[in-house]
Computed example of a mutant assay.
Amino acid sequence: MEQSNLFMATVYEIWLDRLKGIRPLDKLKLIEKYKDCTSLYACADKIKLNTNLQEAEAQIDYMKKNKIGCVCYSDKNYPLFLREMNNPPWMLYYKGKASLWHTPCIAIVGARNASQYGKIVSFQLAERMAKCNVTVVSGLAYGVDSAAHQGALKNGGNTIAVFGCGVDICYPTSNRALMKEIEEKGLIVSEFLPGTPPRPYRFPMRNRIISGLSQAVVVTEAGLSSGSLITADFAAEQGREIFSVPGNITQINSIGTNKLIQDGAIPVVTVMDIEKNLGFTEKHEEKVCAKSIGIEEKQLYDIILLEGETTIDFLCKKLKKTPSYINGMVTILEIKGVIESSFGKIFIAK
């Protein structure tokens, strides 16, 4: 837990969050009218609100013991992107690095019963985003979500898991080890009170936060009934970019993603497409300097870096060299670990 970013709300803010039967949007309207929670509480009897503070005080004690932080809408540390939503949560609870919701974020979501292809694509896209210093947001569910978190964490990247239950509840329970790793290295977030169990109706609410925290949403695999399509709908309402990975038209889990493309989502053809569309770049300098590459190798590397992705034919024309020469140089750079190939033709600077 980042102690410098740990904001423990006042008992009156927790009291407001615990009030039953009041929607998050209505809580915001109450604060707008009464200026702050302390003033609202002072008038609680008049407007017939429960004034018992015991549960709020007990919750604060529980949160302190379990290293659970929280931030309310009126606090300056509240995520900016969520503040711009039509129905932002009044309170966010978290475990881990709260600073991550102030970094560039991309959501990667998809089917729980994902195919091996869906998992691999999700892992590789998340790994690529991490290399571009982009935080990967997902929901810790089976399949695509788990693969996305794991891909982001592989080489020390950042990830945020948004829960449809309390941040102290592991769901699914088989992801306990992954949840622990995210808590230690990334961030777990929920608008639901600690101890809140998972319920089906809470996950669509969770999905609006996944898209709300992110600059764009990537759907890697989804059937027509997939919850990830709800996330994409929220993203469209929030003005976010939507990316979709095309799939085999004979597979059920490709119907949703292919339809998103048909409806205007940006197709993800290579792992570089997201960063190229959104203007993210990877830091290469230190990695290249750490490698012992010659002048001609550096010349070839710089062209690949500039193009983002290219082919042997393009490199031959650009450098006026034979295919055998370029192939040899590419092989050397791959062995040294500064480029990699994808689909046998495209070479990508790591």
Rank of each mutant, 00 (worst) to 15 (best):
Ile266Met: 01
Asn207Met: 11
Lys259Ala: 11
Val268His: 01
Glu241Thr: 15
Gln238Glu: 11
Thr270Met: 04
Gly227Phe: 12
Glu241Ser: 15
Phe234Gln: 15
Val217Thr: 15
Ala265Val: 13
Ser226Ala: 07
Ile249Asp: 11
Ser254Asn: 08
Asn253Arg: 05
Arg208Asn: 09
Gln215Ile: 06
Ala216Ile: 10
Glu237Ile: 10
Asn253Gln: 14
Asn253Cys: 12
Ser211Val: 10
Val268Ser: 01
Thr250Leu: 06
Ile209Tyr: 05
Asn258Thr: 08
Met272Glu: 08
Ser214Ile: 14
Ile255Asn: 10
Phe243Glu: 10
Ile261His: 00
Gly227Asp: 07
Ser214Tyr: 02
Val217Ser: 13
Ser254Phe: 02
Asn207Ser: 15
Asn253Trp: 00
Ala236Lys: 14
Ile255His: 15
Ile249Gly: 11
Ile249Phe: 13
Asn207Trp: 10
Gly247Gln: 01
Leu224Glu: 10
Ser244Leu: 05
Gly247Cys: 00
Met205Ser: 12
Gly223Tyr: 02
Lys259Gly: 05
Glu221Gly: 01
Pro204His: 03
Gly227Val: 09
Thr220Gln: 02
Ser225Phe: 01
Ile255Ala: 13
Gln215Ser: 12
Val245Ile: 10
Ser225Asn: 10
Ala216Trp: 03
Pro267Ser: 13
Pro246Lys: 03
Ala236Ser: 11
Ser228Cys: 07
Ile242Met: 06
Ile266Pro: 02
Ile266Cys: 01
Ala235Asp: 11
Leu229Trp: 04
Ala236Gly: 10
Gly264Glu: 10
Gly227Ala: 11
Ser244Gly: 15
Lys259Met: 11
Arg208Asp: 08
Asn248Val: 03
Thr231Asn: 08
